[in-house]
Design a protein around this nucleic acid. Structure first.
Length: 574
RNA sequence: CGGGACGUGGCUCAGCCUGGUAGAGCGCUGCACUGGGGGUGCAGAGGUCGCAAGUUCAAAUCUUGUCGUCCCGACCA
């Protein structure tokens, strides 16, 4: 391809709307343009990357035994009503009514395709002899994100590969899951993307039922907890902390807690400043409603509650923060002054609460806190739980080392669904004894457009993008330095034709621009191999070849330039 | 949905506080020079200052509303 014949609008300046590197660089390199918040056009160069990544995904899905199909993005709302997800998705589900003749129809734009594919399978699969099977598609998904952001990283319309496995047994499901898991590793590897598979929230099946694939990146929205020593990794929601229960012994002759006035200081920060006491000797008391009953959750002041862990500790199903009225009712004070001493509802405490020697807590009285509160002495403490998000330096649950926290972008997710959808949509099979069972499902997603953004997010330098060979929009950028020089152009055309004939994706920058201008653009769009043909080199019979990652170009005789480029490509692709 | 910021030519921004002729750099068009890391000169094109009301003799500038975009938070099977 010649630059002047395609459409690559690069820009020198950083658009003021773009904050994160991937967004800035994708705009600057002419990969994308914004239509509105959360919706982007993939320009020719960007779309080539989408296609390269999609092709890798296809190859690995096919290799893993999955079969491609293509389902409608537009779907009847009834399907979501049958699975209860119309409500679960809420506003995230794009849906609209429209008239067809005298009928009023209600559609949704698919945020994912469990419903559609399970409906399909329920009609077509009858017997265990047709199973197992794994189907996949690459489709645009629609989610009405409350807040689209970070360019293509979080949009309301995005390209996703979604696969669904259908099995007759948990063993079959596990095989399908493992096949997908391994395929994902190969995909991200081939895309040149660093990734961490992490344990994620487990579903109805329990155990190792879900993994997220995270690309470590400073601007990632998710937190990954991992252990450098043993390789344990989990998302922050899920991560266990390796702490054990340490119950304090009651202190026999302890002084009673001291009341201190803390006017208008309802937050840990406020009180901490007022009393000049560090947050980690506070007992944070959060009032939750668990299955309609108020429960106080006690945490160390500098820790964050984890609702999933609270739910599990209490064996509840529904957990949410209490409203102000409830808080006032159980504590007898406005929000901000709750504490375990004398509280009128049940409470549970995190492991670390028991280790505070003399704590500061709310006094359940307006504008008053207590100091010198001794856990187990001034309030009862017979058992503690893991109720909070893991933090850096927490002990690893698997080994003797400690945990670290890194930011990550979720690029893939594999999930053992079980029979949730097959039951609600009546997808079942007959076994060899003619007994009917719901099909056991798994689902497996990769955000293709998000993978592209993640690559840019992690592979760049000050000059621009650094594409891995496997996903680069073109492999070689060929730069004739002076397009008005017939000799230069002739030499460049020769290389261009030979590389193209050899099946190499070449982009020739045939614009009549100064060399510096073209070099800057070359760095920006970040093609892996750069070949320069200029007047000076030409006199010596040389072209210059440079990898995007090299700092200096190498002179190569014109006649061996093509062969050299092919060597570099072979070495780069592996 | 809560909090904050910003809307001025294609892009980056100044002007706004203190109301009175709409500006710069880059980009774009033409010509000339130049030609190895975003050139130089000359001559041009291009803006109802997001939109709407209001205050005023007069609004890019002040007021109110509204729309849009971005950031933080909440949310994200």
């Amino acid at each position: 391809m010649r630059w002047t014949k395609t459409f690559i609008p690069t820009m020198k300046e950083v658009p003021s709307d773009a904050e994160v590197p991937s967004h800035q660089l994708m705009l600057r390199a002419g990969l994308i343009r914004q239509l509105m918040a959360g919706a982007y056009t993939f320009m020719p160069l960007g779309y080539r990357v989408i296609r390269k990544v999609s092709e890798i995904v296809r190859q690995e899905m096919d290799r893993a035994g999955a079969v491609e199909l293509f389902m409608p993005a537009i779907q009847p709302i009834e399907l979501f009503e049958r699975t209860g997800r119309r409500e679960a998705f809420g506003n995230v589900l794009f849906n609209f009514e429209t008239r067809r003749g005298d009928r009023q129809l209600h559609f949704a734009l698919g945020p994912t395709h469990e419903e559609v594919i399970t409906d399909l399978i329920s009609r077509e699969i009858k017997t265990y002899k047709q199973l197992p099977i794994t189907l996949y598609q690459i489709q645009t998904k629609f989610r009405n994100e409350e807040r689209p952001r970070f360019g293509v990283l979080r949009t309301s319309e995005f390209l996703m590969k979604d696969a669904y496995s259908f099995s007759t047994s948990v063993e079959q499901l596990n095989d399908a899951y493992d096949a997908m898991y391994n395929a994902y590793c190969r995909i991200f590897e081939r895309c040149g993307l660093e990734y961490i598979p992490v344990e994620a929230e487990s579903g109805p099946i329990g155990g190792d039922a879900s993994h997220e694939f995270m690309a470590p990146a400073d601007n990632g929205e998710d937190y990954v907890v991992r252990c450098g020593a043993c390789g344990y990794a989990a998302n922050q929601e899920r991560a266990d902390t390796g702490r054990s229960q340490a119950l304090p012994a009651a202190v026999p002759d302890a002084d009673a807690p001291q009341k201190v006035d803390t006017p208008n200081a309802g937050s840990i920060d406020d009180v901490s400043q007022m009393l000049k006491a560090p947050a980690n000797i506070f007992i944070k008391t959060l009032i939750y409603i668990v299955d309609e009953k108020p429960v106080a959750v006690l945490l160390r002041g500098d820790h964050e509650a984890n609702e999933g862990k609270i739910r599990r500790a209490l064996n509840g199903t529904d957990v949410s923060l209490a409203d102000e009225a409830t808080i006032e009712r159980v504590t007898g004070a406005p929000v901000g002054f709750a504490g375990p001493v004398g509280i009128s509802c049940d409470y549970i405490a995190d492991h670390d609460v028991g280790a505070i020697a003399a704590a500061v807590t709310g006094a359940n009285e307006k504008d008053v806190h207590l100091t010198g509160v001794i856990p187990g002495t001034h309030f009862e403490l017979t058992e503690t739980f893991d109720l909070r998000n893991a933090a850096a330096e927490d002990p690893c649950p698997r080994c003797e080392s400690s945990l670290e926290i890194v930011h990550g972008i979720e690029i893939g997710h594999v999930f053992k669904l079980g029979t949730k959808y097959s039951q609600s949509l009546d997808a079942s099979f007959l076994d060899s004894e003619e007994k009917k069972h719901p099909i056991i499902m798994g689902c497996y997603g990769i955000g293709v457009s998000r993978v592209v953004a993640s690559i840019v997010e992690t592979c760049h330098d000050d000059g621009g993008i650094i594409w891995p060979m496997s996903v680069a929009p073109y492999t070689v950028e060929l730069i004739p330095l002076n397009v008005k020089d017939a000799d230069v152009m002739a030499a460049a055309e020769k290389i261009y034709n030979e590389l193209t004939a050899a099946g190499v994706d070449v982009l020739m920058d045939d614009r009549d621009q100064r060399p510096g201008f073209k070099f800057k653009d070359a760095d920006l769009i970040g093609l892996p191999v750069r070949v320069v043909v200029g007047g000076k080199g030409l006199k010596e019979g040389n072209a210059e070849i440079k990898l995007r990652t090299d700092s200096e170009a190498t002179k190569v005789p014109l006649e061996s330039a093509v062969a050299r480029v092919q060597e570099l490509i072979e070495a780069g692709v592996q």
